[in-house]
Amino acid sequence: MLPAFLVFAVFVIAPMADGAWISLFQWDGVTAGHWVGLDNYRQAISDPGVHEAFKHSLVLILFYSVLPITIGLVLTAALTYARVRGVTVVQTVIFLPQILAAVVIGIAWKWLYDPLGPINQVLGAVGLDSLERPWLGDFQTALPAIGVIGTWITTGLCVVLFMAGVQRIPLSRYEAARVDGAGPVREFFAVTLPGLRNELAVALSLTVITALRVFDIIYVTTKGGPGTETTVPSLLIYQRAFVTGQVGSAAAIGAIMGVIILALAVGITRVVEERA
């Protein structure tokens, strides 16, 4: 235990403590910083730019978490009920985005979303010219467009988690349900869903955290634009820490984000455990 804890202390706790300490200073990252106490927190909490960034995170939770879990459950139910052959192949294909580097994904989707890119070409080819738009540069579609990339990435994780979970559910329960004359929908709500509670908790925690931390995809595609439509807290942290010389403020936003993520993770675990 002790060696593991030492590693944890040096590489996780110490940097976190350092970050918390820096958040109490006004510091440009190069010259000596000076003590400002909780000012960075006060400013972050009253900064409309920070509020907006957190609102965007909420929207991204919908795309990174709610949608993939829903899709994952539907796919799992379908695959389970139909007992399709080649499930492994399907799982592998859906899981692929998980193993790609986010920068590669970002560049690929940037090309897909280009005003002259494949998505608009397909829309044009099937006569939906009116829907063509610069997806990442349009004030209405930029954030959802980023969200769709997230859905594409995290759906595979959810499917694999749920399929693995389903395999732990005793077959006798499914047989019992079928003997009782349950259709696919009844079977899903009576057997599959209750049996997947733990997997749901894991999927929810992981995807919500991914949604809140998303940075690479946005950095590679929109850099927070157009305007501030796709700015998220992690992008603000990056800009303030490395570009605009507001390291204290960046650390404060980071600390706030850390607390929120921790609270959500604990909350999700609790809800699931109480139900159990």
Binding site: Y113, P115, R133, P134, W135, L136, G137, G225, P226
Partner: peptide, 10 residues
């Protein structure tokens, strides 16, 4: 067309 959605390199 779509200038805010086009990269400068492109």
């Amino acid at each position: 067309n779509g200038w805010n959605g086009v990269s400068q390199t492109a």
